[in-house]
Write a protein that binds this DNA or RNA. Sequence first.
DNA 1: GCAAATATGATAGTAATACTATTATATTTG
DNA 2: CAAATATAATAGTATTACTATCATATTTGC
Lengths: 228, 228
Amino acid sequence: MKQLFSGLKIGVNKDLYVKDPESSALGKKIVEKSIVLIDEIGFDSFTFKKLGAEIGSNESSIYRYFENKHKLLLYLTSWYWAWKEYQLVFSTNNIEDPGQVLETAINVLTRRVKKDSLTTHIDEVLLNKLVVNEFSKSYLTKEVDKENKEGFFEIYSRLILRLKKMILAVNNDYPYAAALASTVVEGGLHQHYLREHFPALTDCNENLSPADYFNFLVLSTLKYNRNG
Amino acid sequence: MKQLFSGLKIGVNKDLYVKDPESSALGKKIVEKSIVLIDEIGFDSFTFKKLGAEIGSNESSIYRYFENKHKLLLYLTSWYWAWKEYQLVFSTNNIEDPGQVLETAINVLTRRVKKDSLTTHIDEVLLNKLVVNEFSKSYLTKEVDKENKEGFFEIYSRLILRLKKMILAVNNDYPYAAALASTVVEGGLHQHYLREHFPALTDCNENLSPADYFNFLVLSTLKYNRNG
DNA sequence: GCAAATATGATAGTAATACTATTATATTTG
DNA sequence: CAAATATAATAGTATTACTATCATATTTGC
């Protein structure tokens, strides 16, 4: 915990970059504009050449920060989950009732991101959209097991396990705490995507948020009594 | 319904292919071996050139069946969901109790696929793995809205809506029927993926299946009584 | 059984991608 | 101010994702 909150710098696995993008103006620009460009044209058509053109820099300079665009995606999504973890811990810190803790956690993890600006160069609203649209692509690869061993999904995993703990604090006998935690986080992203592109496949809209849905879902399954 | 079950041929949107792969030996071979090859090397490294080499055919011949590998993926996943829809309707056909119908549906949609072989050339077990690993990539694109309008996700959407109806048949007041239906189907894929690559993030294993988890989740949220 | 139509195969070519390597030019630092 | 470091520019390679053309099988219709 200590390392995560010292100085408010969001820390990600150092093997995700060649040179720390936080260490220079160019690095920050790469991160900042990659979020904008990926949001604009999608990760699939995104290239370092296009990004270079966008920021008035050269392709080869970007390669000195990130090995390839996959690593950049891992960097951006790790940053996002680290940021969410920070929010999660911070916002539940002085709540005592486990039910309240869990509700707050679900809200933090499934709410649409509003303007927040922890940093000057990262637009969290856009980054949230990027995660909704592209996060799955970061782990649905043939290299997932190798990269998982290298710790590239550590922050995300830790976040799910934190939620799992909060679930068990409400009902220690619940047999599907990890599955439920992962359902909430992944499902949260998915419901936001559906709302945008397949509105018939979700009930979430302006009046009913994914947070409402998941709060009810979790509450009901944790409090459910087979005999009553 | 009629068109779906006439002759047992699984029907997908005709705009997904240039020439119907079911109409020739080469077409069937393309479909058959693409499933094997995508499963082997992953969709990202899969190319028509490699597939051509694999089946002793030419890249250019494959282009005469599918416009590009994205359309092929849409074809394969549509076929899968059409097959699941068939199983869903067939297996719930003569059940009267809505609770039983729903349980059967959840089992069909979240169970790991066992050998079935409706056709000679499609290996449903491999196709199920392919869907777990690659389905998200078929809709997480910038073209999703356009392709959705063209009906490329029609079968999938219809399947979710069928499940939604079954949910409402159990509890007509449930306010999140569509969200729950999509959670079960997508979540089913996701839990299988986690089991394989992130076992700490799910409770599903040899003894506890995603079907068990989702049956309990759905049952509890549908039967939950706020006041008791 | 043969001509015409159709399907498949082979080859070539293009623009873009995903890099690597090298060299030149800024910029920073000691 | 020299040395070190960062960035930019250019070039080059293998692969991808196609398109086009032409040759050769195979099928079919008479």
